[in-house]
């Protein structure tokens, strides 16, 4: 059974159709890429899946449960975590707190426990902290735990976002352009990282990316969007040669040069 099942998803902003009849099914433990020119509606798909927007039409099922229109923090609690195209860390929180705060939903020890510092609260807090430190060390950020997130260099901020997304033990990880702004050697490390965390945490990954090296290097299947619609789906090497994809990326010139 598929982990994420999106059917007929449609989203409009005013008169603009951002996503139209988007249908994709992702199996557990799959690594699927979502590509397309700027403005194709890729990030909107992520925003719909995570509950940032409610779709105009269509359904999103996660583990057989309908989640479209559900509030974002509830979707997150079900096991869908994400990173952002333009890094969105809590700049004035420490690196460690950035990770720990993302575990807020979990744990039953609420406000009263937290004020009274009950054993239950301390136990949960310790579990959260241990888990956060483990993730920081996996991502090579354990030396930075007490620094403010905004003082980290760019590449480390990207890794911190991934650590934060993992603390909730998600089943599905959405990565929105994880390689944006990275140099080629950082991109190589990132690809290894994505593959290793996928195995280690038994993740299903859905990623948006512009760098073809990443898409071709790690994705098992690629979905191509243009103007809000899927124009092609398939293995990376198939997609790469699909004339519609070439046209979407390179425009009419591709046709002209072929003639």
């Amino acid at each position: 059974m598929s982990l994420l099942d999106i059917r007929g998803l449609t989203m409009k902003f005013g008169g603009l159709v951002a996503v139209k009849d988007f249908t994709v099914s992702i199996d557990a433990h799959e690594l699927v890429g979502l590509i397309g020119p700027n403005g194709a509606g890729k990030t909107t798909v992520f925003n719909l899946v995570t509950g940032m927007h409610a779709p105009v039409a269509g359904t999103i099922e996660f583990q057989g449960r309908r989640i479209q229109g559900m509030r974002p923090w509830r979707v997150y609690a079900l096991g869908i975590a994400r990173t952002f195209q333009n890094i969105r860390l809590f700049g004035m929180l420490s690196v460690l707190d950035n990770v720990r705060v993302a575990d807020h939903h979990r744990g039953e020890a609420g406000l009263v426990h937290s004020i009274l510092r009950s054993p239950k609260f301390r136990h949960e807090e310790k579990r959260t902290t241990d888990r956060a430190l483990e993730l920081l060390s996996i991502l090579g950020l354990d030396q930075r735990r007490d620094e403010l997130a905004r003082n980290l260099p760019y590449g480390e901020q990207r890794r911190l976002e991934i650590a934060r997304a993992l603390v909730s033990d998600p089943k599905l990880l959405l990565l929105d352009e994880p390689a944006a702004g990275m140099n080629p050697s950082e991109v190589g490390q990132l690809m290894e990282l994505i593959l290793s965390i996928k195995e280690r945490f038994n993740l299903t990954v859905f990623l948006i990316e512009h760098q073809m090296k990443v898409v071709m290097g790690v994705c098992e299947r690629v979905v191509v969007m243009e103007f809000g619609e899927i124009i092609c789906t398939g293995k990376p090497e198939q997609v790469q040669c699909d004339p519609k994809v070439v046209e979407a990326y390179l425009g009419v010139q591709a046709e002209e040069s072929q003639q």
């Binding site: 995570t50 509950g51 940032m52 509030r71 974002p72 923090w73 997150y76 609690a77 975590a81 994400r82 952002f84 969105r88 860390l89 809590f90 700049g91 004035m92 929180l93 707190d97 720990r100 705060v101 993302a102 575990d103 807020h104 939903h105 979990r106 744990g107 020890a109 609420g110 406000l111 937290s114 004020i115 609260f121 949960e124 807090e125 959260t128 934060r164 909730s168």
Partner: peptide
């Protein structure tokens, strides 16, 4: 102490910085 050292305080600081991201990170804003 509450704002700096409790779980709820941490969430409050996160929400004050970025509400949308807090929502997407599992906080009931």
């Amino acid at each position: 102490w509450f704002v700096n050292s409790t779980k709820t305080g941490r969430a409050m600081r996160a929400v004050s910085m970025d509400k949308d991201t807090s929502r997407l990170m599992g906080i009931d804003v």
